[in-house]
Structure formats: C-alpha cells, structure tokens
Design a protein around this nucleic acid. Structure first.
Length: 465
RNA sequence: GAGGUAGUAGCUCAGUAGGUUAGAGCGUUGGAUUGUGGUUCCAAAGGUCGAGGGUUCGAGACCCUUUUACCUCCCCA
C-alpha cells in the first residue's frame, strides 16, 4: 500500500525541525525573560470543556474522539440512540466524550479554575503546543498546527498590555524580521462605535465586517453591513469612523486618538477605551528598547473576529511579505467565568509559528548554522583504527562537539558522499598511515583543505566554530 | 459546509487530433576510480499512468463514479 498521512498534517524533516525549534526557542527565551512560566495541558480535553466556547462554527471544527468499547453488548443500545442524536447534528457523551484541543486559551482557563488554590495571581504563563481543527486545509492552514501563547490572568493593569507588546517587538527583533507592524485597537472603542451609531446589539456584525476592510475594501465592508441588516445612517457613521484611520498619519497616534475621542464623544465606553490606549502606549514607550525597529500603531479598523475580547486588541504583520497576520491577541474579561471562577481578567498574545516560518523562509532569515548538528564524521576505512576512533569520539563528545563514525566499512567514495549530503563540515580520516603516526587527517569539506592533527589540536580547532 | 484545478518512475514534469513496446531531468544503484565528496563520463534498475466502471477495433488521453492533493469562499492561525 502507498503510505500517506492524514489531510492537513505534515512531516517535519530534520532541517524543518531545526528551523522550527529556532523559532520556538527564540520566542520561549523572550517569554522567560518577561517572567512567564511554562504550562502544558493534555492533547485531549473533555468535549464538554470545549463545546460552546468557540461559536457554532468553532464547534463544528472540533475534532471529536470516538469512545472505546462501543461494541460491548452493555453499551450497544446506548450507542445506537446516541448515533441517532449525532445524525441530528448533536453530541452525545455515549458516543464521544473527548476531543482534541482546539486552542490553548480555553484549556488554560480550565487549568486556572482547577488549580486556583495553588496559583499565585497574577498568573503569567506561556504555552507552546499543537492544536487541531477539522477545517478544510489550504495555503498556510493546517489541521494540526502549533500555537504559541503568553497570557496573564488576575491583573487589570495596562502594564501587562504594554509588556506583551514589548514581547512581540523583542521576539521579532531577535528573529530579525523587517517591516514589523504591531497594530492595536480597543474593543471598547468598537463597542462605543456601535453604541453611538445606535446599533449596540450589532457589535459582532460590525466587528466582523470591519475586520475585512483591508481584504474587501470600504465598498465591500459597506455591502457586508447592509447584508447584516444595518441601515444607511448607521453605515454612514461607521464610514466616518473608518475614515479617521486614513486621514491621520500612521504613526501620529495623538491626532488619531483625538479625532476618535471627538467622534465618539457620546460614549463613555469609547472614552475609556481611548484613555486605555493612551496609557498603554505611554507605558510601552517607557519600557521599549531603542534598538527595536518595528512600528507600533493605533489602527481603529483592527477588529479581530473572536468576540470574547473586551479591551485592547493587537495584531502583528510584516510589510516585507504578503501574508496575513503572524500574531494576535487581546484582553478578555471573565474568561474563567465559563468554568465558575468569576471576576478574573486576562490578557494574552499568540504567535503564528507556521506563518512566521514561511516569512523567515521567504526572506532567507534562518541562520546558516542550523543546517547540521554533527561537526565531524570519521570515515571507516581501516578496521584496525576502530578502537582508536571510539576513543576520539569520547573525547570530542566530552568536549561538547557532536561527532560520529560511519558505522559500516563502505567504500571511501560512498562515505564521503554521505558526509557531503549530510552537510557535515569536517571529515576525520584515519587510515593505515595516520594510525601509525597517531594523527587524524582533518578535511574541511567547504574548502577541501586537509591537514594532519593530533586529537588535542583537533578538539581545539573544532571547539571554536 | 460550498465551489474550482489537478493526480503519469522516489521527486519535478512531458506525453501533441484517442493508434505499436509510456519518456526526460534530478535522485538511486553499479562502473570509470579498492585513500577522497560537491564537477565529469558510461550503464542499469525503477511505472497495474490514483482506484473502479463506461465509450471504442484500440484509452495515460474521452465520459461517469470514487479517492487524494492543491487553490478559493465561509471561518480562522
């Protein structure tokens, strides 16, 4: 049979894994530097934990796991009735009671509620694990992909927002991605807009439509708003709201914030949101590093689909590559309320690892030394040298230098080809003559140069890359 | 969930209006070269043309079904 893997999943070959680990490690280091702690949760959750948390569309995309033991005679009757319910589009614990993790935020909320007595609040955690969605795969979208989140719960301070923006800028600075734009907005401003134009109940419709602005343009947004049942007057107001964006320079936060404060003067919520944006930016200015080249900007057209956000929302993109957002997040009040722990506010961000990979690849930003781990391979051409080579391997490895021996005594030519294909920078040759001299013939594969060294000198040479 | 495009050697693909025995490049293996890779030359192996059915004297090609991949919409990272 022809082997295959499930739709929307991928193998990661050695070079891919190294590159992905480089991204993950860079982000992890930054998370740790900002005082976030690692957390891991199970691949599967109880289905009841996940259902109803991501909207109807989300529920449909959750991968469900079939219960075991359905063929046991004492279960078959229950399973049959349960199956009837499933055919009606419902779930039934007699058929499925577990599901694969859909994101990292809900498991995090569940964890916080379960462990509330052990945790020191505010609790800052980061989490890097795969998630699964039964979506139809397409460009840059997979059924199994990694998320990389940092959240803090139990603090209302905007210091957290300012620091999370700093994490974004620090991480992309370290990854050397050019043209990074960190865009921020406040859900309170959007809620104020809905309020002021007299459509407070249509906040979700408005945000979903606005969110598509850069994709479908102003005309498209207006059409979408009509479809979603808003009248001309309201759409006119929303259009004025959107125009504030284009009428003020990208980096001129003040002018933009002032204009918006004026337009939404009638909404207390909006005024609060604008004040929060100002405060967040003020904090951020104080803690930001002068070497960061990324831009941070207020973008009132930023909406983000997830409707549990209640305060700041943020999205990251790069102007250097044509690609959607490579990170996003925001503040959500009362996330843990769903699991019975009220009054805890959280704010978090997420890195889109797969898209960041594509960006780094397209711009050639992966460090060259990620290619191979092994620094030196010994060819196997003289059987009597084997005991000596084992000794050399021990010494090299003790010195922290990755070394290996070609295990089979194949033709020299074949062994060289192997070293070349593996991209191993050095080959150690010990044949009859070197064995007698107690030396190693060290070949630099890049230059083709060769010289004879004793093991001590060889270690010294390879220790400094 | 809706739509579009495609499936030929390990990989990337060619295969003209249906017509003998389905090709190329790369890769693999062997040899030139039993102590030298990345360059060169020679040779070989490798295919139920995704699967099933149909039209035809004859199908890789045309039709239907099915499956898989890619792309777009919805939604999202």
């Amino acid at each position: 049979m022809k082997p295959s893997i499930p739709q929307g999943t991928r193998d990661f070959s050695p070079a891919d894994v190294r590159r992905r680990q480089y991204i993950l490690q860079t982000i992890r280091n930054v998370f740790e530097l900002y005082g976030y702690q690692p957390l891991e949760t199970p691949s599967m959750e109880n289905l009841s934990t996940l259902m109803g948390k991501y909207g109807d569309e989300g529920d449909r995309l959750i991968f469900k796991i079939l219960n075991n033991g359905l063929n046991d005679p004492k279960n078959t009757e229950k399973a049959r009735t349960a199956f009837e319910r499933v055919l009606d589009g419902k779930n039934d614990p007699n058929l499925t009671e577990r599901a694969l993790r859909y994101d990292l935020t809900i498991p995090f909320a569940r964890y916080v509620v379960m462990h509330q007595n052990e945790l020191a609040f505010p609790f800052r955690r980061y989490q890097m694990q795969p998630v699964w969605r039964a979506d139809r795969p397409q460009k840059g979208r997979y059924r199994e992909f990694w998320q990389c989140d940092a959240d803090v719960v139990g603090s209302n301070s905007l210091v957290n927002e300012a620091e999370l923006l700093g994490i974004y800028r620090e991480a992309f600075h370290r990854l050397q991605v050019p043209g990074i734009q960190v865009k921020i907005n406040s859900r309170k401003v959007l809620a104020g807009l809905a309020e002021c134009c007299g459509a407070a109940g249509s906040l979700t419709d408005i945000t979903v439509a606005i969110d598509k602005l850069d994709k479908i343009g102003l005309d498209g947004v207006q059409k979408e708003l009509v479809q979603r049942g808003l009248d001309e007057e309201k759409i006119g107001y929303i259009t004025r709201f959107l125009s504030i964006q284009s009428e003020h320079e990208a980096r001129a936060h003040e002018g933009r914030l002032d204009a918006m404060a004026q337009l939404l003067a009638g909404s207390e919520t909006a005024q609060l949101g604008i004040a929060e944006l100002r405060q967040t930016l003020a904090y951020h200015d104080q803690l930001s590093n002068a070497s960061w080249t990324s831009d941070i900007m207020v973008d009132f057209t930023l909406a983000r689909g997830l409707n549990y956000y209640t305060g700041l929302i943020v999205e990251v993109a790069t102007s250097a590559v044509k690609m959607g957002s490579i990170g996003g997040g925001g503040r959500y009040d009362d996330l843990t309320g769903l699991f019975g722990l009220k009054g805890l506010s959280g704010v978090g961000i997420s890195f889109g690892v797969d898209r960041i990979y594509d960006v780094l690849e397209e711009l050639g930003l992966f460090p060259a030394q990620l290619a191979s781990g092994t620094r030196i391979i010994f060819v196997n051409i003289e059987p009597r040298a084997t005991p000596i080579l084992f000794g050399y391997l021990n010494e090299l490895r003790a010195a922290g230098i990755a070394a290996e021996l070609y295990a089979d005594s194949a033709k020299f030519d074949k062994q060289m080809k192997y070293a070349d294909k593996r991209n191993i920078p050095f080959v150690g040759i010990v044949g009859a003559s070197e064995l007698e001299e107690g030396m190693i013939n060290l070949k630099d594969m890049a230059s083709g140069e060769q010289r004879k060294l004793a093991i001590g000198d060889l270690i010294a040479t390879l220790a400094t890359p």
